[in-house]
Simulated assay, not measured.
Amino acid sequence: MTYKILSTSIIYINEDMINQRIDNFLKKKFKNIPKSMIYRIIRTGKIRINKKRIKPNYKLKIGDQIKVPPIKIFAEKKKYCHINYDQINLSNNILYEDNYLLIINKPSGIAVHGGSGINFGVIEYFRKVRPLEKFLELVHRIDRDTSGILILAKKRTSLISMHQQIREKKIQKEYVALVHGLWPCNLKKISKPLLKIYFKNKQKKMFINNNGKVSETYFKIKKQYSSTTFMSIFPRTGRTHQIRAHTSYVGHPILFDKNYGNLDLDRLIKNKINCNRLLLHAISIHFIHPNDGKILHIEAPLDMNIRNFLQNLV
């Protein structure tokens, strides 16, 4: 095993960091450190704020000084990939921006953050090309293979406000997807609990299981083709892979879904443009602006791959 030592560090708390619990702050700051270790070094007094011992529920205040001791952690080898920032210009995908939020139309195939063997994602991209931004965090996540609306917060107050709206189900999202088969007209809602299972290769998959978390998705038919259906989909909860797992469960998986799809059905589809991306797209979002309280409705146009594929369907 390969280990590395994180040296002693002093963190000064500014206005974008306040009101967080110290345990949550450290978990975000040091993602490679196990949660159990974080709680242990807090409990044993090795983490000091203003030279004093604190408890895990201590909330950070402006001007606080956090002293973090040397920590020995396992250094996992990552499969680093070289990113050409001239070829991937996500700045062209910005749908909306002000002093509080940055909303983009994320392309399929790009992760929202690094991890699981890759060192690049949307959040790393914008932190790299905007070094003067003091604060940039993901408000939510969408799958790597899913395209569409992704929101970043440019202030901690914006992040807190948006997360509160998510918890209170005030944010309305619409996805569109092309699924196999003719979707039944009377199937307008799937409410099945989803349980996350991790495999040895660190991949995860969601399964319908009574021990899982409550998951609810609404469906509306947009257009039916000879052997596929174009759907509007409205998730009421935000579980991992929720739409993909629910559509697969009822026998209408999304086209070209490598984890929840049907490879035999995918092969039967006439693919004139050789499209093999997941045909799932976050097309619109409706929420309250975290600063002025106004209602915002943002739409993300379909990319050329999906539009060309739909035009060739019969």
Rank of each mutant, 00 (worst) to 15 (best):
I5Q: 13
I295H: 10
S226M: 06
I103Y: 00
F120E: 12
I62R: 13
Q224G: 04
P70E: 15
I221T: 11
K28R: 13
R167M: 08
K173M: 05
D266G: 00
F309H: 08
R156W: 09
I13N: 03
N210P: 08
K202Q: 14
F25Y: 12
N271I: 02
I208Q: 10
I41Y: 02
P301R: 12
K155F: 05
H252N: 06
G261N: 00
L102C: 05
P131H: 06
I171N: 05
I94M: 09
A300E: 09
I288Q: 10
K55A: 04
H297N: 13
F120K: 07
Q20K: 12
V68L: 14
I104R: 07
S284N: 09
K205T: 04
V139Y: 01
P70V: 12
V176R: 07
H289T: 05
G121F: 06
V139E: 00
L302T: 08
I123T: 05
S9K: 15
K223G: 11
N274V: 02
P235A: 13
K154F: 07
L280M: 06
R239W: 06
N119P: 04
Y198T: 09
K46Y: 09
H297Y: 13
L101W: 01
R43K: 15
N186Q: 14
L60M: 03
L265H: 10
D145L: 09
H113R: 08
M231Q: 02
T2K: 11
S147N: 07
K173R: 12
V176H: 05
Y125P: 07
S7C: 07
I10G: 10
K196L: 04
L6R: 01
I160Y: 07
I22E: 06
I221V: 11
N271R: 06
H286S: 15
I197M: 11
I254E: 00
H180G: 05
G238P: 04
A245T: 11
G45M: 12
I54L: 07
D16A: 11
I66L: 14
P193G: 02
Q311C: 11
T228W: 02
K270A: 09
F207T: 08
Q224M: 09
N305Y: 15
A245G: 07
I33Y: 00
H82Y: 15
L255N: 00
K154E: 03
W183E: 03
